[in-house]
């Protein structure tokens, strides 16, 4: 069964059509990259999949592991293993990273009918993963995203993904604002999470991340549709030539 199956999807935001007939299929274990110029609808796709209310579906369907995703509340989607790494993660003053992670982890446990993990075991689970991203214990006690640099915010998103171990991870520009070292760490984290069951959708402007992750498929999103699909070679072409040459294909 496909992890994700999007057919003829039309989505409007504040009555403005953004996605116009998008088609996409993700199989278990596959990593897909979606590239495209600004305003092509990449983030709208990510937000729609996560259940953001402003994204109104005007036509088409989205099935997630065989179920109609569009009728599920955001937390239900999360409970079923859908994770969104936000492009601009919001600040949560007064709430420590560790507290949010614990609440989120236990919400997932609850959704799976499992008991909450005890504090010590959770601490272990968390420490292993935060170390891999070079995040200190003190950092875990800081309030979520408050005063974080762009790179710290992105690493925080990745840490949440590693802690929650989703079935489908959608990472919206996880590579933006990262220096070379941080990018390598993030790519390492992503690669470590790849397995035969987990699928990923990477949304990015730049092929830099893709050079380190090697996605199975690369798609170009323009004018609200996927106009071209291919492998790593396509990403490399885009780096050399930009998006201009594709405008004809799009229209």
């Amino acid at each position: 069964m496909n992890i994700l199956e999007i057919s003829n999807l039309h989505v409007a935001v504040m009555d403005k059509p953004i996605l116009r007939g998008l088609e996409l299929e993700l199989k278990p274990g596959e990593v897909h990259a979606i590239m495209g110029p600004n305003g092509s609808g990449k983030s709208t796709l990510a937000n729609l999949l996560a259940g953001r209310e402003e994204c109104q579906v005007t036509a088409g369907s989205v099935f997630y592991q065989g179920e109609n995703l569009l009728v599920m509340a955001p937390e239900e989607r999360a409970g079923k293993g859908l994770f969104l790494g936000f492009q601009n993660p919001v600040e949560l003053p007064g709430i420590s990273n560790v507290r949010l992670l614990k609440e989120a982890f236990n919400a997932r446990q609850r959704h799976r009918g499992l008991p909450a993990m005890d504090a010590l075991a959770f601490r272990d689970h968390l420490d292993q993963r935060s170390k891999r991203l070079g995040l200190s214990g003190e950092w875990l006690l800081r309030p979520v995203n408050v005063g974080f640099s762009g790179g710290e915010k992105k690493r925080n998103e990745l840490l949440q993904m590693m802690v929650l171990e989703p079935r489908l991870a959608i990472l919206d520009e996880i590579d933006s604002g990262l220096d070379i070292d941080a990018l390598a760490l993030v790519a390492e984290g992503i690669n470590a999470m790849r397995d035969a069951q987990r699928s990923m959708l990477l949304i990015t402007h730049y092929p830099r991340l893709l050079d380190l992750v090697h996605p199975d498929h690369v798609h170009v999103l323009m004018e609200g549709r996927i106009i071209l699909s291919g492998g790593m070679a396509l990403a490399q072409d885009l780096e050399k030539q930009g998006y201009g040459w594709l405008e004809e294909v799009a229209t």
């Binding site: 996560a50 259940g51 955001p74 709430i95 609440e103 919400a107 309030p143 929650l164």
Partner: peptide
Amino acid sequence: YCRQRGLSNEEAVSLIVNG
């Protein structure tokens, strides 16, 4: 953000108020 991490609306409000 909180709901995407699996918290219900009420849990999310309560967490933010606590913060």
